[in-house]
Amino acid sequence: MSDNLKKLSDQGVSIWLDDISRERLRTGNLEKLVKEKHVVGVTSNPTIFAKALSKGSAYDEQVKDLVLRGVNVDEASRAITTYDIRWGCDVLRPVYDRTDGLDGRVSIEVDPRLARKTGETIAEARALWWLVDRPNLFIKIPATEPGLPAITAALAEGISVNVTLIFSLERYGKVIDAFFEGLEKARENGHDLSKIASVASFFVSRVDTEIDKRLDKIGTDEAKALRSQAGVANARLAYALYENKFGTDRWKALKDAGARPQRPLWASTGVKDPDLPDTLYVDQLVAPGTVNTMPEATLEAAADHSDVVGDTVTGNYDDARAHMEALKTAGVDYDDVVKVLEDEGVDKFEVSWNELLATISGELDDKQGAGA
């Protein structure tokens, strides 16, 4: 066992892996990470699946079957991705049972081409929930404005949701409100609230990447001194908002009805700038009741040399606010930053999804040509 990761887990941080592939499942690697690296959950996204499909032969047999069945590329993508997610859910099921449903969760994302279409997102969330058919599944729905009512609708039907692509504090507040409304409707619909779970994925490193680019353009010494701190400051203020919202009477009424809180999840925690410590977004975002979903490289780095010294979030709200104010004074437009990041996030996942479809289409054509 890794002492560093155990320390992190003991601080109330759930360690999730931001990766899944057929090869990782087939070789038992995921099960090994659960046993040896305190991994208690898995997240996926279109980029991860596009990468997995482009390597090796792990998907060949399933692709052959899909060719023989004559399915189109969209249905093939659902069949392939849900197969991996279902398998991942089964690997993590003992964790789900041991933690009474807190962890042991595996996330699959709604087709990102639907990110700005409410009705279609709801329909796809239902379809994925039915296809995977595991209680420890999370359906990932982006926190776009059209995504908010879809989040509420999915929760109202008893579907557990991982809200993704959150960058701004204002949007995060709306995400929590959508969560509350969804649970209130679920209660009205007769669902057992204790069986519905949710996390809110607040992205970290991309905030630094965008803001540092703007600080470099400003070019002053004062601006340069502010580099690579906004991602952590923004996330810390998100946790402050979480504490505030989940201290209200509205939440208390839901909690009394059996509801679980929507946990903050730190996403995009691999550093983008090689000059930064590779465990920056692990060490600086330790807080109880949170999730940190890490790429494998970050997980291994944290296991090797993470410096876990206790809660590094709740005592730093004033400093975080001061930093964000200093960015404003320097000329960084926060509202524009988060808008750009959301737009880019949706676009990047859509590009990855199209790459995934192109890869699957190519595989189907190859197997068709070879007579499957």
Rank of each mutant, 00 (worst) to 15 (best):
M1G: 06
S2R: 14
L5R: 02
L8C: 09
S9Q: 15
S14F: 14
L17T: 03
D19K: 11
E23Q: 09
R24D: 04
R26M: 06
R26G: 04
L30A: 02
L33E: 05
V34R: 01
K35N: 15
V42A: 00
I48N: 00
F49D: 00
A50M: 05
K51L: 11
L53R: 00
K55Y: 09
S57Q: 06
Y59W: 04
K64L: 08
R69A: 13
V73S: 08
D74P: 05
E75W: 12
S77D: 12
A79Q: 14
R86S: 15
V91F: 13
V95T: 14
R98S: 07
R98G: 07
G104Y: 04
R105N: 04
E109P: 01
R113L: 15
R126F: 11
W129A: 11
W129K: 02
W129C: 10
V132W: 00
V132A: 01
I139L: 10
A143V: 12
T144W: 00
P146L: 07
G147Y: 00
I151V: 08
A156N: 04
A156T: 04
N162R: 06
L169D: 09
L169K: 02
E170I: 11
E170W: 03
R171N: 06
I176A: 02
F180A: 03
F180M: 10
G182P: 03
E184T: 06
K185D: 09
A186P: 06
D192N: 09
A197D: 03
V199A: 05
F202H: 04
F202V: 02
F203E: 07
V204F: 08
E210T: 06
K213Q: 14
R214N: 09
G219F: 11
R227S: 10
A235V: 15
L237H: 01
Y239I: 13
A240R: 14
A240K: 15
E243H: 15
N244I: 10
R250T: 07
K255N: 12
G258K: 05
A259M: 08
Q262I: 09
W266H: 03
A267T: 14
T269G: 11
V271K: 02
P274Q: 13
D275V: 13
P277Q: 10
D278V: 08
D278Q: 08
T279H: 08
L280K: 14
V282N: 04
D283R: 13
V286H: 07
P288V: 12
T293Q: 01
E296R: 15
L299W: 02
A301E: 01
A301V: 05
D304P: 01
V309G: 11
V309L: 12
N316F: 03
D319K: 09
A320L: 04
A320Y: 00
A322H: 07
A322C: 03
H323L: 12
H323I: 02
A330G: 13
A330S: 07
G331K: 14
D343V: 15
G345H: 00
S352Q: 13
W353G: 14
T359Y: 07
I360C: 03
G362A: 07
D366F: 15
Q368H: 11
